[in-house]
Simulated assay, not measured.
Amino acid sequence: MLKIGEFSGLSRISIRMLRYYDENGLLCPAYIDETSGYRYYEECQLVEAARIAALRDIGFGVALIGEIIRGGERTLERALRQRRKELLEERERANSQLLRLESALHRLGKDECNMKYEVTCKTLPARYVASVRDILPAYSYEGRLWHTLMKETAALGLQPDGPCCAVGIYHDTEYRDRDVDVEIQYSVKGRYQDTEHVKFKTVPPVFMASAVYTGSYEKISEVNAAVAAWVRDNGYVFDGLSFSIYHVGPNETQNPDELVTEVCYPVRKKGA
């Protein structure tokens, strides 16, 4: 048998953590000397210790590790798959935060007050589109909808139509931190059958005020401010759901500085 110090060295788990595991019934000594209080472990418990350490490194807490070990292989697989999903979502959030950070660094020292955006008023004509709509954890998850659209229509040979092919529409009437209602639309030629998540439909024309900008999506607040000022100064009011047209999107470039986006707001003349 191994003394607790020896077991600690071989398992690469501190004595403090071994005592904590024992208190929580996760990894208990095989024998405790009643006279001295010394704790002893079996050599075979090193395998169990390694399993616990691996699960801790993945990010599981002590209580959940206990449930996993007691639940067997199926419980382990279910827990691992759930943890993988959580880590992928964390990575997606971290990547989004890094993009915002890089954009902020890139703009340091620049006079943002001098940034000008040309706002125009026009009608987006009626279009036949492939549409996917879902509730997403946050706006940054919109790529999931495009992935679904591409995956489910890969065998259909969709033919793009018009210069404004890719559109993202935001169905919530206010900004939301989570559980956002987003729809994407891809303008196509011809007629197609709906798939599981992709619906084909004709959308009506939209009279809108819009501004095109180049660069990261983090600029959108500035562009929104320019559009709002134009709407106010030209006697219009907002009249419908905002949307974005992706003239050059993530499918065409991985460089945020090369993205070309048109921010669009349906409008009408005040009093009309």
Rank of each mutant, 00 (worst) to 15 (best):
E6V: 12
S8C: 00
S8P: 00
L10R: 12
S11A: 15
S11K: 03
I13W: 10
S14T: 15
I15H: 05
M17T: 15
Y20T: 09
D22S: 05
N24G: 06
C28A: 13
D33I: 01
T35M: 07
G37P: 08
G37A: 06
Y38L: 02
E43T: 11
Q45E: 14
E48R: 10
R56F: 12
R56M: 09
L64Y: 07
I65P: 13
I68P: 12
R74I: 03
L76C: 13
R78N: 10
A79R: 08
N95R: 15
R107K: 05
R107T: 09
K110I: 07
K110T: 13
V119H: 12
Y128E: 00
D134E: 13
L136A: 01
L136P: 01
P137N: 08
Y139R: 07
Y141N: 12
Y141K: 02
R144W: 00
A154S: 05
D161C: 12
P163W: 03
P163G: 02
V167R: 04
Y170I: 01
E174C: 10
R178I: 06
I184R: 07
Q185H: 00
Q185P: 01
Y186G: 02
K189V: 01
G190D: 07
K201D: 03
T202Y: 00
V203L: 10
F207H: 13
S210E: 13
Y217W: 10
Y217P: 03
N224L: 07
V227P: 08
A228T: 14
W230G: 11
W230M: 12
D233G: 08
L241M: 10
S244A: 15
D257A: 15
E258T: 04
V267E: 06
V267W: 09
